[in-house]
Nucleic acid binder design. Structure first.
Lengths: 338, 338
DNA sequence: CTGAAAGCGCTAACAT
DNA sequence: ATGTTAGCGCTTTCAG
């Protein structure tokens, strides 16, 4: 618990110089920098983030707000953000809203306002005007990931294009009776992704001159069991069973594969299935999918923040590109039977 | 961004009184408390955690260190810890070591030492002596979850008993050719759970007078694909195929169910399978398992910390009980064939 | 029960 | 390039 004063004494300089030498801000000769580093090392000196924050007004800490944690997408985004932040010497403090309304309110009204974070990353959350503006009033940069927030810079995939690509893959193989398992209306509140993906699916169908059949759409909850249920209904239909399914998430797609198996249908011989995500289990199930890269999204969010937070351009340039996605063809899709 | 001074002025008291009124520490008359609360509310005052921490030496923030994030167990522990902390007005800052050796070093040598946290929760991590002692030298309480750390208070399940229970369930149904899929040696470094579970399995067998057959053990990596591979080997054996499998994790157990299906074996008619965890997918797969309760573990870790951190007994009493576990029988286990 | 005042440990002008 | 110094916004003795 050595303080800056002791380091200064040991290095034979002033505390101001120690501060400059250690933080990299301001001019210090190479020689003194070394002396200071040495002294600091000897004493196991680590700056007190509180004192530093209080004096400088910068905490070197960012808040990440998520609606769930126990979910592939969110966990991956956080992992990406965390490691990018660590590299920059930043901490990540986590706000998980799983608990419900009360938690959300106290996080936005209290926790995020107590000057503990320099910026906020909101993942998969549609923030209210009030939430956004209270953050902005404090001068805290806010950035969204996966779910656009009006008036806020957000990293977000082109969900229409993604779903279109998945559907086109199937169309290209010759399928026309293509079903879609997407999010129900309840998911459209915080994400708009369900309807966007449905739109992408429909556009692809229409552009290919294929009629969109309402009976071939099933809402589900993005989970594996949800996908299983929906697929059972779709594939159990006595008339005009679809020859392919595009599911809005890999978990639902995997559920669909299991449903098909349970019905005695072979994938992809009897039915082709494509998902969206590239979930960690997708390789195992041989699922064809459109990959998104949530870890990368977390990193990109941090990169964007750093540009706002760090005046010096010591952060690698990262253009404001749209989020990438990529069709990954595995063994769950093939030409339709006959 | 109103400061304490403005609140004091508006309430007609000194800043000292505001501090006392808002923090609950020290004597304040009910009347002034109300006045202050009113003034603070009017001004949307939120205390600056940095100034408060610097002055008081307490950050009201705890660090949580995990080896992975994208995993059911860790995510659940964090969720539990997070919500318990939120209730106490604490923040949670997350340190994810997924990146590798470098990250770990900088987290322990730098990040955790910069006085940003009052305490540390290490989840599923075996800390080195150096790591533990540098934390203790700073006076930071440290508590382990899921993986005992020598010399550190840890919440940890009785893995021997858990595996024994799973095995006894099978023995009780009449199985004797019971295979075990457990962690390989590489997992024994940070967790000792693999070998403990194996011991529990063996003890149960021995106590039942059943010989432990080396050929009936397969190491795997705790994942679904890993369990699938292992089960394929076990169940594909031409001689003396096991009639049951106890897997050290639900993911491996689910992999085993899928492996059995792919071999044309029926679960549980041809083979019974039991896991350990009660993973979110286990209900869907009808998996019999021994549940552990990771969310609760996160909460308990926080409760234990609060006792150390908060002198006042405003934290509900929670005895130092061993972690609970519970056999949940679903449809993946039954009497052996014939 | 309340107020005055001395820091908490560092950073950032400003001066040199 | 380095030192001096005045705070950052609170909490906490210590008086009263």
């Amino acid at each position: 618990m050595a303080g800056i004063e002791e380091v200064a004494r040991r290095a034979g300089v002033s505390t101001a110089t120690v501060s400059r030498a250690l933080s990299g801000r301001g001019y210090v000769s190479e020689a003194t920098r070394l002396k200071v580093a040495q002294a600091a090392g000897d004493l196991d000196y680590v700056v007190s983030s509180n004192a530093s924050s209080l004096a400088s007004g910068r905490t070197r800490n960012v808040g990440v707000v998520v609606p769930f944690l126990n979910h592939w997408f969110f966990a991956s985004v956080i992992e990406g953000a965390e490691s990018a932040l660590l590299r920059q010497g930043y901490d990540l403090t986590l706000y998980n809203l799983t608990g419900g309304g009360d938690e959300r309110k106290s996080v936005f009204d209290h926790f995020l306002l107590r000057q503990r974070v320099d910026a906020v990353i909101a993942v998969g959350l549609e923030l209210t005007e009030a939430e956004v503006s209270s953050l902005h009033a404090m001068g805290k940069p806010l950035i969204g990931v996966g779910g656009a927030i009006s008036g806020v810079f957000s990293l977000t995939m082109d969900d229409v294009a993604v779903a279109r690509l998945a559907t086109e893959h199937l169309l290209g193989l010759g399928h026309t009776r293509i079903a879609h398992i997407g999010g129900g209306k309840e998911f459209d509140l915080d994400f708009h992704l369900p309807s966007n993906r449905r739109i992408g699916y429909e556009r692809a169908m229409q552009d290919a001159g294929v009629r969109v059949d309402e009976a071939l759409f099933r809402p589900a909850d993005f989970t594996l069991p949800g996908g299983y249920e929906a697929a059972k209904q779709l594939l159990g239909s006595p008339h005009n069973r679809p020859t392919a399914i595009v599911a809005s998430s890999d978990e639902m797609a995997i559920g669909s594969i299991l449903a098909a198996r349970d019905l005695g249908l072979h994938v992809p011989a009897d039915v082709s299935i494509v998902g969206i995500d590239d979930h960690q289990l997708s390789t195992f199930f041989g699922l064809t999918t459109v990959a998104q890269f949530p870890r990368r999204q977390g990193e990109q969010a941090v990169e964007a923040l750093m540009k706002l937070l760090e005046p010096t351009p010591d952060v690698p340039e990262s253009a404001d590109v749209p989020l990438p996605y990529e069709l990954i063809v595995r063994s769950s899709t093939a030409r339709p039977p006959q």
